[in-house]
């Protein structure tokens, strides 16, 4: 619930306040886009700004105080508070309403709690000095496939954060020992109910990483499972190569647990080559998937800001992921 904002001599009726709140929630900053857990003080910021703005113009102030009509207040609020208006005229307000979001992002990324406040302040200062002008120049709300302002701003914040880390050089993104040891246990055992939630989060991260491989995702998943000697179902093999013959299915779904890496990839590479119309050697496929696996491990470690994962952990996580996400993948309608 929004906190009541009162100005001396500027009391507004509860009715108008409720309408303003409705306009903010329903029209300008819907919670579906501006998640209130990231924008807990959105109402306060906007209401404060709105009252400040219209107080400076007596005609508008009178209109707002007297009218009490939703349409008139909605129009007035849109003129003052719409994101594009704020970006054009008051970019500092965009930063202000994203302030808590930025704080949470820094808390998410930076594990040294004592440094977070300074980092947030520096990011906000740089946003106000430079980046907001750039965003104002580049961001066009009328353009068709435009990203959300929050995503755009957070990408900028993320890049500023990385710049700060590079500049500081005093401490790299490693060494959160408690997290490290904790995650090691989670990834290692991964089965206790208390840790299930953490494993789900890890699975989500892995899923997000795999999603970025886009067209080669299915091949990456299949190859990783083969690399880690995880059992492959016919459905999974067919998702990757829809036209597999029966004997090819048998090759991909066989048990490789007693087979060396070189043997495994020399067995499966003809199937891959036939369906990708390539002439790769088995070593190329083996190295390719090894590089992908290393990339994924690096991403997972980077997301933890610690050397949490090794290749073995990725194998464990892959096993968990394929159990928990296989249903979800099918629900998403992937062939």
């Amino acid at each position: 619930m929004a906190k009541r904002i009162d100005f001396p001599g500027s009391t507004i009726s509860d009715q108008n306040r409720a309408i303003l709140s409705e306009v903010i929630d329903g029209l300008l900053y819907p919670p579906a886009i501006y998640n209130r857990s990231l924008f807990p003080d959105l109402h306060e910021c906007l209401t404060h700004h709105f009252l400040t703005e219209i107080r400076s113009r007596p005609a508008r102030w009178k209109l707002f105080k007297d009218v009490g009509k939703r349409s008139a207040i909605a129009k007035l609020a849109t003129e003052v508070l719409a994101p594009q208006r704020l970006l054009e005229r008051h970019p500092e307000m965009i930063v202000l309403i994203h302030r808590r979001c930025i704080e949470r992002f820094v808390a998410y990324k930076h594990h040294y709690a004592g440094e977070r406040t300074d980092i947030v302040q520096e990011i906000i200062a740089r946003l106000l000095e430079r980046t907001m002008h750039k965003i104002r120049e580049r961001f066009d709300f009328r353009h068709g496939p435009a990203p959300s302002l929050t995503s755009y701003l957070l990408v900028c914040v993320r890049n500023l954060y990385m710049d700060l880390l590079r500049e500081a050089k005093s401490r790299d993104m490693r060494g959160t020992e408690s997290l490290d040891s904790g995650m090691r246990c989670v990834v290692e055992r991964g089965a206790t109910p208390f840790e299930t939630l953490a494993m789900e989060e890890e699975s989500e991260k892995l899923d997000a990483i795999l999603a970025l491989y886009d067209r080669s995702r299915k091949k990456v998943e299949l190859s990783l499972k083969i690399k880690f000697r995880l059992r492959i179902t016919e459905m999974e093999a067919l998702r990757c190569f829809p036209g597999l013959a029966a004997e090819e299915l048998a090759v991909l779904t066989r048990d490789f647990t007693q087979t060396t890496d070189q043997q495994v990839f020399s067995i499966i590479v003809p199937v891959f080559n036939r369906h990708e119309e390539k002439t790769n050697a088995s070593d190329s496929l083996r190295k390719w998937i090894h590089i992908k696996a290393e990339e994924i491990v690096a991403h997972l470690n980077r997301l933890h800001a610690a050397e949490v994962y090794s290749m073995d952990h990725l194998a464990t996580l892959m096993a968990w992921h394929s159990r928990t996400f296989s249903t979800a993948i099918e629900k998403r309608g992937q062939p």
Binding site: L38, C101, F105, R158, E204, K205, A208, L212, H299
Partner: peptide
């Protein structure tokens, strides 16, 4: 990939 993951996972969890 790193840029996208950082922001996407943050927003997804948030």
């Amino acid at each position: 990939q790193g840029v996208i993951l950082d922001v996407q996972l943050f927003l997804q969890h948030a």
